[in-house]
Amino acid sequence: MIEMQNLSFGYGASEPLLADMSLSLQPGSFHFLTGPSGSGKTTFLRLCYADLLPRSGRMIAFGQDVSQLSRDGIAALRRKVGVVHQDPQFLDHMPVADNIALPQIVAGGPVDTDVIRDLLDWVQLRQHGGALPPSLSGGERQRAALARAVIMTPELVIADEPTGNLDWEMSMRLLDLLIEFNQADKAVLFATHDLNLIRAAKQRVQARVLRIAGKRLQLAGADL
């Protein structure tokens, strides 16, 4: 699904922030990505959905070399990858339900109200469907972002510190939703520095833990 071969990346002409990174994301896989603040977790995730292009190395996403993709090609790639940020952004003038339907709207397809309703139920936001995003709490925003990320049934969901601003209970709820999504043979790449969350997750899902250290991507061992 996503193959990275010896990727390196740096902003501008500066020293590379990430170097020699290789990774293969397969359907049904669950990966945690961890590392200290500033280690390049977000940069790495942005490479995964082609928000950044590597300085060197090769990245194949869904059979296509990302460096060769046109802007429309990148848009098509992003419809196969759902992204949830720590601080998810919405169109604040549109109700939550419409924000969740946004990928369907911009794809030009019909908006499936049944799917929207099911997703609102799934993330337990049924009663907030008509509300505007600024009225949602942090946890509700994360769940709305997750619903928006999965509405096009992507092959992969990338979550960048989605529990960073949430309490433990809400973090576990979000984790449960991602595990449920993963069980439909979808891949999840979850960046967090919350080791307790990773330990809790490992009891419920077979997950691999990756760590960025010294500019490189490593498979974390049992020291978690």
Partner: peptide
């Protein structure tokens, strides 16, 4: 700008935006 970034993130084509 935020609208455009959100739209690009969810896979909107330039033509749509």
């Amino acid at each position: 700008g935020q609208v455009i970034r959100v739209l690009r993130l969810i896979g909107a084509r330039d033509i749509t935006i």
